[in-house]
Every structure is written in C-alpha cells, then in structure tokens.
Design a protein around this nucleic acid. Structure first.
Lengths: 140, 140
DNA sequence: AGATAATCCTATTATATTACTAGGGATTCT
DNA sequence: AGAATCCCTAGTAATATAATAGGATTATCT
C-alpha cells in the first residue's frame, strides 16, 4: 500500500513548474534546490512526463521546463500514472497474472480502492495544488 | 501505490478461516491447498494476526485456526493493518521523516487517499466478504 | 507409549524493486 | 568560445519483499 518516491517527487516537481507558470521555464537545478531532490534523480522523472505531453523542454542556457497546458487542465492522476503503476495489485492491470480472479472476492475490494484513489487524484488539478500551497505558505 | 502480498494473502487466509467458522479450526495445510499459497509462507502471516487478537490457534493433530470473533465483527482494515504498513507515504505515520510537512501541499493529498482507502477497508467485514464469495461461486 | 498431525520459532536465501549515481553528449544562449 | 542547460544510457547501492528451510513443541488418536 505504498506509493513510490517517483510519484511523490514527480508530483512535487510538476507543482514546482506550475508555480512558475507565468515566469518562464524552470531549470532542474533550481527545482532541485527548492525541492531538495538531486538533479540526477529529477532527470529521471522528466522523460515519462514529457512522453505523455505534460511538459515541454527548452534546451540550452536559460532553458528548463514548462507546462504544456494551463495548471487547471492537468490533474494529479495524469502525473501519477505517467510515473508509476497506480494499481494496488497487478491483477487489476493484467488479469492473466492470476487465475483466481473470477472466484476471488477480494479482487473487487482492491478494485474499489483503486477507483476511489483514482477519483481523488483525478479531481485535483495543479491549479488546486497551487492554491493549497499558497494557503500553507501564508500560515507558516 | 502497491499493496504487498502479505496483505492480500492474509486477507484471503482470514476469509478462508471465516468460511469455516462453524466447522471448526482450519489447518494451514488445508488453507494452503485451497488458496494455492505455500504453508511456509502462510505460517509467516499468522503471528501478526494472532498478536492483534483476530485469530486463535489450536495446536496438535486436528488443530488449526479459528476467528476470535464473529465474522461480522472483523473488518478488513484490522487485517491489513496487522500485516502491512497501510499508509501510502511514510510521513503520514512518522512526521519526523520529512521536514517539509508543514509547507508540503501534496501531504494533504496522500492523507486524503489514505483515509478513503481506510474507510473502504473498515466498512467491509469478513461476513460481507463471505456473502460476496457465495455470490461469486454461484455464478462460476 | 508411540506415531502422527499440527502449530511454533528463527534464520536464511532469493528475487525484485526502488532509489540513486555517474559520465558524457547535444543544444542553445550570451 | 564558454557556460548553462537538457538529454541519454548505464550502472550500482540499498532496501524490501517473497519464499524457503529446518527443527522444536504441543496435542490427538490408536
């Protein structure tokens, strides 16, 4: 029932890019400093995010990453799904890994859990997260 | 976002014991055959379940395991929590692993996910699962 | 009493996954 | 030219998980 650091760090990275949406591209170096994640590790989270078209890169000095859509048009499920396997158990994704699916009463439970988790992630956009972030910062 | 086999197998084991609630103790040998899980692996799931008082053992020939309460009085959250860490991220359990909690907007999301997952598991009793199992079996 | 069936306990190994690091190449800006 | 940046592939280290092994203990049954 664990979520990997890929998903967590990736979400933070995307939020970091979102918070700079108006200001231009965000470099991995800056992101790494703010998020306290190594540049090298961040580098590995980028390709999948690009592959699904959530971010765009600008190479060379002064370059970095920007969102391809407005923060209100990107939800957390898209981010998570690009970075890690979101199903709690394998049989939900590939039914052939287990021959017991039809008679397995627990199967439905894992499915329910997956759906509720996905619903939460789908309902939250980066814009929502930006708003939450602002609220938090003001309190601190 | 993965659930370990401990939790899955343990839940199936508990359901197996529940389905024999009226018939007396269930031996690991029988359970292993029905569930297609090795006796040796099942053996490892037992101690935590005993420790939290969900099952009771009867040693010696003809022995096995029985529930300590009626199946309607045991929910899946209790089972899962005894077998694996149920929080999606460590900072939910031990706030000191991360210094960013106060300013981290994503923290609240993982918390929401944990709560919705727990609510589902808490709402399902072994009696509910027995009912579902019966329905499934009749269809097959 | 003795054979058998079961739980109990501890340790070990195997496997997989995850997290992270390293090094160098390509591109763009100043 | 030189610096800053992304890009790509590979490799390693650490951790966690899954599974196995062997033997000790306890109870039942004949």
């Amino acid at each position: 029932m664990k979520m990997s650091t890929r998903g967590r760090y990736g979400t933070r990275a995307m939020l970091d890019i979102a918070l700079n949406y108006e200001k231009g591209p965000v470099s991995l170096k800056d992101m790494a400093q703010r998020q306290e994640i190594s540049v090298k590790y961040l580098e590995q989270l980028i390709p999948p995010l690009k592959a699904v078209g959530l971010i765009r890169s600008i190479r060379g000095a002064g370059g970095g990453y920007t969102l391809t859509r407005h923060p209100s048009k990107i939800n957390l499920l898209e981010i998570m799904q690009s970075l890690e396997r979101t199903s709690p158990v394998d049989c939900l994704d590939s039914p052939d890994v287990c021959s017991r699916i039809n008679k397995c009463a627990t199967y439905d439970v894992w499915k329910e859990i997956q759906e509720s988790t996905n619903n939460i992630l789908r309902s939250l956009t980066l814009a929502d997260m930006m708003e939450r972030q602002r609220t938090k910062s003001n309190k601190g």
